[in-house]
Design a binder for these strands. Structure first.
Lengths: 178, 178
DNA sequence: ACTATAAATCTTACTTCTAAGATATTACCA
DNA sequence: TGGTAATATCTTAGAAGTAAGATTTATAGT
């Protein structure tokens, strides 16, 4: 029963403590992730790259050449999306496709020397930006936070994989866990 | 299958401990947020709503009618985006625009009775899904995590607002802090 | 060998969202 | 008052991505 007032009473839905805590956690988790992401995006776009483009060249930089499908799962885009993005990066000379000798359906994505040079040039500053973004906590508390978030994420992935719609996405993510 | 590659040495960039810890934290933070988001999206899409649509009706449900610009800042979409989304929700009869008596430029967005009824019907289960998604940690650890993430987010927002590109977005976000 | 199925990428059509500017209204201030 | 800037929303064009299916190649059972 809400009062039929000019400004309708906002709904109260924080029934029990565990649920209220969970919703609060979900808000601050999203907001913290968003804020760090802004710092990351800021740095990335200052180099004329989109976040998805950077994610691709970063994974290639750290793991070496990789099948398009593997990149796709790591970067969490659709198969059409990875084609689109690699096309763009190839046009800019940062990435190239290579044939797979053992499977003629497959293509590797690999950094060109230009792409490699770009990452050597910009990645250290990017890492420093992330370091500054999370500097609200001292390093030892960051380590505690890492443990907690790992436990949280692990269970959340399990719960997500139990519901029908997302099974595939989560399964693929787990597959790509290096 | 994959051939044993003479893979070009992957780049090592974890120079110092603080930076390595920060990068690790950024990964697990993103991944935990992503996993909980999958659970949330799963639930939302099972009701035929997009995440952005749900975000709008959720904020209207909890805070009551609100100027389009306020909704926009809370939901973090562009001004064109809020017009597009409210149009869609209005077509489905969940939301309506109302004139603002004191400012003829402005419009309120408000839930219709149908929108209100829908949220009463689906929100408790949504909150329960979030509660289950974060159940990897006991409630008292969740509270510790909330404090840590608040400190992290606060500093990250400050750092983000120092860089030119994002000043506006972060400032607006801070404005909308209720 | 043959067939069916699966896998890897690409294509197409479409959805969602942004950026920039248009429009209308309000606020400020000389 | 009148002029300028600010505010609130909407419009338009296009970017960025998805989903579904097409294409090509590989794998496995018979």
């Amino acid at each position: 029963m809400k009062s039929p007032q000019p400004s309708p009473a906002p709904a109260r839905t924080d029934h029990d403590l565990p649920t209220a805590t969970a919703l609060k956690l979900w808000v601050v988790l999203s907001r913290a992730q968003w804020a760090v992401q802004q710092v990351s995006i800021n740095d990335i776009e200052s180099h004329g790259l989109s976040p998805a483009e950077f994610a691709i060249i970063e994974v290639l930089f750290h793991k070496g050449p990789m099948l398009l499908g593997e990149v796709q799962r790591k970067v969490l885009v659709s198969s059409g999306g990875i084609t689109f993005l690699v096309d763009k990066l190839a046009k800019r000379g940062l990435v190239e496709r290579r044939e797979c000798p053992s499977d003629r359906r497959a293509r590797y994505a690999a950094l060109t020397p230009e792409g490699e040079a770009l990452m050597h040039e910009i990645f250290p500053a990017h890492a420093a930006a992330i370091r500054d973004a999370v500097a609200g906590l001292p390093v030892d508390e960051q380590k505690t936070l890492i443990s907690a978030l790992k436990a949280l994420g692990k269970e959340a992935e399990r719960v997500a994989s139990e519901t029908p719609r997302c099974k595939k996405a989560v399964a693929e993510l787990n597959n790509s866990a290096s």
